[in-house]
Every structure is written in C-alpha cells, then in structure tokens.
Nucleic acid binder design. Structure first.
Lengths: 149, 149
DNA sequence: GTGGCTGCAAAGTCTTTGCACGAGT
DNA sequence: ACTCGTGCAAAGACTTTGCAGCCAC
C-alpha cells in the first residue's frame, strides 16, 4: 500500500511544483524505505552506494524543500541532529533511549481519544494544527524489535 | 509553590551529588524563572548581565550534568538547537510555529486518559517510561499569550 | 588538601550558503 | 532558452573538549 511506483513518485514531486530529478527521486525513495527516521547523513550514505556523485549539500537542500512543500516532515529530537519522516499521516513516535530508534506508532482509538479531548478543550489565541505523542522508554532486548499488541 | 528558596536549591543540587557553586545556582534559577524553555545561549545572556565572568562552556556543561542527574530535562525540537525545561513534572508542550515559543500545558484529565490507554495497550519488548504530547499550531495574535480555558 | 568545577579557546559536528556548471521543462 | 537544481567547498551555528587554575567540601 505505501509502496509507490516511480511514476507515482514523479507525480508527487511535480505536483508540488518541483522539477523531477534523479537525486530527488532517490532521496524520496530512500526516505520512504527507511523506517527509522534517518538523518541527512544516513540518506547520503545509502544513496551514495548506488550513486557516488551525489553531494551531502543536495541532500540537505532537498530534504528542506520537501519539508517546506509538505512531502515529508521533520521529527523532533533532543539529540543534536535532524531526522526526517517520509510518512505524513497522523501517527505517533516511540523513542528508544538506548538504541536511539524512533518507531512509528499508529492507533485509531488513541487518535479519536485525543481529537475528542481537544475538541472540547479550547486553547484561546491559538490555531491548533496537530497533536502528536512522544512515547519514551527503552527496548528490553535491543537486538529484537518492539512489537505493538 | 514552584518558587524555591536559595537553601532549597542548594539542597537539590547537593542531593544529586553535585558541588554547590555560584554558577550552578544561577543556572538552575535562571532556568526555573524562564518559562519559555530557553537555549543555552539565552541562559548565558541572562546570567551574564549580573555575572559577566560566566562562560558559555560552563552553561553547556552544567545543563548537561543537570539533565543527566535528572534535575532538569531537554525539550525535543525540530530546530537545530537544544532547549531545556526546568520543570520535570508530567506535562505537555504547545509549540508555536511562528514565534517558536514552547508553552507548558497541564491537564489532569488528559494525563489520566493517556495513562489509562497505555495501561491496556501493551507494547512488548519495550519498557515505557514516559508519554508526552506535542501540540503544534500557531498563535493568532503573536503579541498576546496563549490561554488555556 | 583533593577532586570536582570553571573559564578560555580550540576543535568538532551538523547544517547552510554561494557560485559556477548542468539538467529538466 | 530559461530557470531551477546540483556539486563542491567554504562558512556558519551550535556544542563539546582539553587543560590550567580555582573553589567547595
């Protein structure tokens, strides 16, 4: 379902008023594939294997443009670097303090709970756009995945 | 209630196994006073007015130690810098995208809602420590405060 | 007195910027 | 063709580090 064809990706990019270049296709794809909310550096290393001529500056510029145009989003962290998220649907993040992983968490019941709450709880002088949960903790066995029951 | 005397602050610092120094007292106080979750730079400028000899390096080192020892906490951001929070009770943050302010949000009903949810929703191979909300949006009138009704 | 703390400056990391060349429409 | 995007390298912002001297305990 979330796997997109090359043609679809081209459309997404050009629909946002951007030229479709090889670099942009690769950056977009790399981010979609990478589930762990990578840094610019990680995307750079990943793409470089197939395409050694790409530059880190381009990765930064492109990610910034994608964020600006709303194709992707930034992830909040308390580490000193930026991480990106290729999925822009309404979901939450689980932060693992030992492995530094950021894992997606999706739950419809929770989303409903939260939006019901903020429908009655009004905040004045504020135009609310989005509410996300930051779930913090640590993996018990770092070699295995976290699983949501 | 949250206003602490000098003696109380000294106790907090030494109870965490740290030497009580003038710089630490000032850094701790500055952070408690500052409601907007300041950067190291902002704390530096604030303290410098009264005490011009303090160094930025000390601010960074001290904040880092305070975080490590649990006296204060870091705030997650998607900007390129670190911000700190002097209040470590369970509360959420409102992020204003135009003024870059981070405003505290406290609601007992919401805390209960969330903790009830995570009591039944189990995440395996994960030791959950903390759940916080990131409320994003923007001030309608940037010159006035956001008010929670 | 001793070990931890501070100030200073230098180094390090991450990110942005400027510019000439190259590619997409 | 014209404009926008890319690569490179330099600059910038933020943070960490090393070390000599200083201070709390």
């Amino acid at each position: 379902m979330s796997q997109k064809s090359l043609g679809e990706i081209k459309d997404i990019i050009s629909d946002h008023g951007l030229k479709v270049t090889h670099q942009r296709l690769m950056i977009y794809q790399a981010l979609k594939e990478e589930k762990k909310h990578p840094t610019a550096e990680i995307i750079f290393e990943k793409i470089r294997k197939k395409n050694p001529s790409i530059s880190l500056g381009t990765i930064y510029k492109t990610l910034e443009i994608f964020v600006e145009k709303g194709l992707i989003s930034r992830v909040n962290t308390s580490e000193g670097n930026m991480r990106y998220d290729g999925l822009i649907d309404n979901h939450d993040h689980i932060y693992c303090t030992n492995t530094k992983e950021i894992i997606d968490f999706r739950d419809e019941e929770l989303n409903t709970l939260i939006s019901n709450f903020f429908n009655k709880k009004k905040i004045s002088n504020f135009d609310l756009k989005d509410v996300r949960l930051h779930i913090t903790g640590e993996k018990i066995d770092p070699s295995k995945d976290v699983k949501i029951n």
